[in-house]
Simulated assay, not measured.
Amino acid sequence: MPISPYIKSLRDVVGHRPLLLPGVTAVVFDDAGRLLLGQRSDNGRWALIAGVMDPGEQPAETIVREVWEETAVHVVPERVTSVLTQPPNTYPNGDQTEFVDITFRCRAVGGEARVNDDESLAVGWFALEDLPPISELVRQRIEWALVPGTGAWFSAPATRRL
């Protein structure tokens, strides 16, 4: 997967040290209730469409851009379903990251799902009862997106005594 010019400029300064990065994830449904997934080119796993925010970009703008860039599907973000910090990750080149992720439930409003860049091996719509193998975090994000209402899941702060 290509590295954004912004993150490359940070890496030029910090090297492989951990970067805390803002990211977004899309739980996209079509009118038939099917879920949009992409098979990642870096690890072959099926996942929700996700990406990193660019400087000056709003999270909802990022999710619209990322879904289009990766799948050629136009979406409308409907609501935030979770805010969380993902576990730390080390890439094969030694770069370390930790993503603060905002997950949006989105509705597809146009386009034809297809591989639209080099980040995916395949892209497709799946009925919820017929999903390919996915991680527990992906499954949890889908479940949060299916909960009616407008509240988003977040980890409650630990109680501290002063």
Rank of each mutant, 00 (worst) to 15 (best):
M1C: 05
P5N: 14
I7P: 03
I7Y: 12
K8V: 11
S9V: 06
R11Q: 11
D12W: 03
V14Q: 03
H16F: 11
R17D: 10
P18A: 00
L21R: 11
T25I: 13
T25V: 14
A26D: 07
V28T: 15
V28M: 03
D30P: 04
D30Y: 01
D31E: 15
L35K: 03
L36S: 04
L36M: 04
L37M: 03
L37G: 00
G38T: 01
G38C: 00
Q39F: 01
R40V: 00
R40Q: 00
D42S: 06
N43I: 04
N43F: 01
G44M: 01
R45V: 04
R45A: 13
W46Y: 11
W46E: 02
L48Q: 04
L48F: 03
A50G: 14
G51Q: 07
V52T: 14
V52G: 14
M53W: 07
M53F: 05
M53E: 14
P55E: 07
G56C: 03
E57Y: 05
Q58R: 15
E61A: 15
E61W: 08
T62Y: 06
I63N: 12
V67R: 08
W68V: 13
W68D: 14
E70L: 07
T71C: 13
A72T: 05
V75D: 09
V76A: 13
V76K: 13
V76W: 09
E78W: 11
E78F: 13
E78H: 12
V80Q: 08
S82Q: 06
L84Y: 05
T85H: 10
P87L: 10
Y91S: 11
Y91G: 01
Y91H: 12
Y91E: 12
G94I: 07
G94E: 08
G94D: 09
D95M: 13
I102A: 04
F104A: 09
R105E: 13
C106M: 11
A108H: 11
A108Q: 01
V109R: 04
G110Q: 02
E112P: 00
E112M: 06
V115M: 08
N116W: 05
D118R: 12
D118Q: 12
E119L: 08
V123E: 02
G124E: 02
F126D: 05
A127L: 00
L128Q: 08
L128F: 04
E129A: 06
E129N: 13
D130E: 11
D130K: 05
P132R: 01
P133G: 03
S135D: 02
S135I: 01
E136S: 05
R139G: 07
P148W: 02
G149N: 07
T150L: 12
G151M: 04
G151Y: 07
F154I: 00
S155G: 05
L162Q: 05
L162K: 06
